[in-house]
Design a protein around this nucleic acid. Structure first.
Lengths: 151, 151
DNA sequence: TTTACTGCAAACAATTTGCACTGCA
DNA sequence: TGCAGTGCAAATTGTTTGCAGTAAA
């Protein structure tokens, strides 16, 4: 597992953040949300994200976080990489190309995995299906959490 | 796509239903729920299942349906094969062995697909992950729904 | 100036839970 | 007979929405 963006101290360029909003208006709240989201090193829930957002600006409401995350997902800036006890898990995956995610159920660390479903999709299509989407999710305990005994 | 159990008129043997409850008590309500669930030819939500269950016995409550479905999933009698607008989709898949599902987003028809994730899981494990689970879901429009234009 | 975005609170919907009762084992 | 299962209703919880105010374009 390589180091995360946040651990390396990377920052997202303002122009990238603007692009992430896909033509929508660029407001302080949206910039804050996109910035906090992209700074996460692990998969996060909306609630966790909102916590970080409020640290930067306590006036930003939960509804705005939901709405902005939806916008960021629709532009591909964020991915929904799973869920944890009913709440959706998101992550900013800088990796390009089609791939899937492996999420550590203990710490939320995210790794990427190439898509293994191509053949399956192809055979479904040859059977007459119009395949409109697919999802491959793998979860487990990452090497670091295994070493520390699961917490 | 082959015909479903329900279309062929199959019925589940009482002993199978008992086994589906995994050692739990066998009550009329649970038998009804398991029977109605196994009679479905397409993926169904709890609400749809409850509708059918109430047709057989209007006194069976929604909570019992939820609790019984949870029991049936834990014994493997039912599979959660996806979700539709926030609600979980279930299906009784008689097929043995490890596999995944293809669900028609129009009618809920379910087909099985072999697991394409073996290699991905193996490589995650060789990278130090303890893989505890995975899920492959493919959705689209089945041949029948394509022919009829989507409804 | 226009209207998308915001914050708040209320609404929503799926699911879970508490509790007293019932009936299976 | 004991306790798992049941039905009902209330509670929970993640998420969405209505609305009036604000500010980006």
């Amino acid at each position: 597992m390589s180091e995360s963006r946040a651990e390396r101290g990377d920052r997202i360029a303002p122009s990238q953040l603007v692009h992430a909003l896909g033509g929508g208006r660029v407001t302080p709240a949206r910039l804050t949300i996109a910035e906090v989201a992209s700074g996460q090193s692990h998969a996060f829930t909306i609630e966790q994200l909102a916590l970080g957002v409020r640290k930067a600006n306590p006036r930003i409401g939960l509804a705005t976080v939901y709405r902005t995350v939806a916008a960021l997902v629709s532009t591909g800036f964020l991915d929904q990489v799973g869920e944890r006890s009913g709440a959706a898990l998101y992550f900013r995956c800088a990796e390009g190309g089609h791939h899937h995610h492996l999420v550590c159920t203990t710490c939320g660390a995210v790794s990427t995995a190439p898509c293994p479903a191509r053949d399956t999709v192809a055979s479904a299509e040859s059977a007459g299906y119009l395949v409109t989407g697919h999802d491959v999710r793998i979860w487990g305990v990452c090497p670091a959490c295994r070493r520390t005994g699961g917490d």
